[in-house]
Amino acid sequence: MHNPTKALLRTAAAALLLAGMSLAAHADPFRLIVTHLEPPLVPNSVMDLAVELGYFEREGVDVELVRVQQTPSAIAAIQSGEGEMANIGLDALIQLVATGTTDLKAVVSPNKSLPYLIAAKDSITSTADLAGKSFGIGRPGSLDHSLSSRVLTADGVDLAKVDFVAIGQPDIRIQALAAGQIDATTVSIGVWQSLPDKTGLHILVSQDDYYAAAPVINKVNIVSQKALEQRHDDVVKVITALVKISRDFAQDPSKWVDAIAPFQPNVSRADLETLAASFAKSWSVNGGMSAKELQYSTDWLYQTEDFKDLKPVEMSSWADLSLVGDVLKTLGTDASMDAP
């Protein structure tokens, strides 16, 4: 005999189960893969600090950071489904696409470029003085070598007259410079700032002038095609949060200092404030996806040794600019920096 009470209970239970499943699916974290183990002393820290300061939460997306050590690990993680978005080198993305990968797209760049500068002995007062001098690099063809060659060439320096010396990592190069073993080198503003004694040294090419001479986008955030299809709204929310926090830090650098300080206890507030000032034009207030700069970066990459045997690829095959475009339609464009 039909029992209406039991039927009603079964219906209610089924409804609750479906609701629970829906909530569980909605509550799945959006996993963002980053290639640093703590918030770094560069604008890329916006990803970590957007979690800490609640920017993602306010946009209605639960972001979980997945930390790996290098771009290859980040690529492996996103390809194996361990994350929805990953921050990787642009060169690695284009290499993947040029060799047949079709399901990854760059959608935002929270930190377009490495904050490089050229430091030198005080006796070297202009780039022209580098002729006949030693210039420390990571290795022949490394990013610092290739970019600095572009910067120096743009300033009229004959590279054949510069003695490029392979030394290794930035911290080793800056110590070699401080010890007088080389005459100049390229390092990030963070490495320069961390050098305790700068006696006899100065910044030969500033961070802003370096990027102006070589506006190469270094890192982008990629998403899988699956994430674009299944979590499109969450991708837009993540981009929105990153743009908002970048604008807030650009407008008030002390907010970045306050936010990063707990994660960098060995760096003085004065040094953090100096770093914040050096980032004045580096924040991706419009998402960091200028088509002009992306194309410049691609053209430059294809002139390097690592790309000499790779087929050219169209930007549309590795970048989707529409998501940043949609975000800027809502937030408006910040004309102060970061051409959209």
Rank of each mutant, 00 (worst) to 15 (best):
189 I>W: 00
245 I>L: 03
288 G>M: 10
86 A>L: 09
63 V>I: 07
144 D>S: 12
317 S>L: 03
191 V>A: 05
245 I>T: 02
113 S>T: 13
329 K>W: 10
255 K>E: 11
237 K>I: 04
75 I>K: 10
97 V>Y: 05
338 D>S: 08
10 R>Q: 13
92 A>D: 13
146 S>Y: 00
317 S>R: 10
204 L>P: 00
145 H>F: 02
47 M>Y: 03
281 K>L: 11
237 K>L: 07
44 N>M: 14
223 V>H: 08
236 V>E: 08
97 V>K: 05
5 T>I: 15
77 A>G: 03
170 P>D: 05
290 S>W: 03
192 W>M: 00
297 S>G: 04
322 S>E: 12
335 A>I: 13
223 V>E: 04
70 Q>G: 05
16 L>Y: 04
259 A>T: 07
143 L>V: 14
101 T>I: 12
197 D>G: 04
202 H>R: 00
67 R>V: 14
252 D>V: 08
122 D>C: 08
226 K>P: 04
125 T>K: 11
201 L>W: 00
261 A>R: 14
173 R>P: 01
314 E>R: 11
113 S>C: 09
200 G>D: 13
207 Q>G: 00
142 S>T: 09
312 P>S: 13
56 F>I: 10
35 T>M: 05
154 A>Q: 14
111 N>W: 03
180 G>M: 11
217 I>F: 08
222 I>L: 10
300 W>P: 06
174 I>K: 01
241 A>D: 02
298 T>A: 11
212 A>E: 10
137 I>S: 00
133 K>A: 04
143 L>R: 12
335 A>T: 13
67 R>H: 13
73 S>T: 14
123 S>M: 09
281 K>A: 12
20 G>L: 02
175 Q>S: 14
17 L>C: 08
129 D>Q: 06
231 R>T: 09
148 S>H: 02
128 A>I: 03
97 V>L: 11
135 F>P: 00
136 G>F: 04
284 S>I: 09
58 R>T: 12
117 L>Y: 00
18 L>T: 06
157 V>L: 06
77 A>R: 09
250 A>V: 06
84 E>D: 15
79 Q>C: 11
257 V>W: 00
150 R>I: 06
176 A>M: 12
209 D>I: 01
74 A>W: 04
336 S>H: 15
13 A>P: 07
300 W>V: 05
53 L>N: 11
230 Q>P: 06
138 G>E: 15
60 G>W: 03
252 D>G: 08
110 P>D: 04
340 P>A: 14
134 S>T: 14
254 S>P: 10
226 K>I: 12
38 E>Y: 09
301 L>R: 07
5 T>E: 15
201 L>K: 01
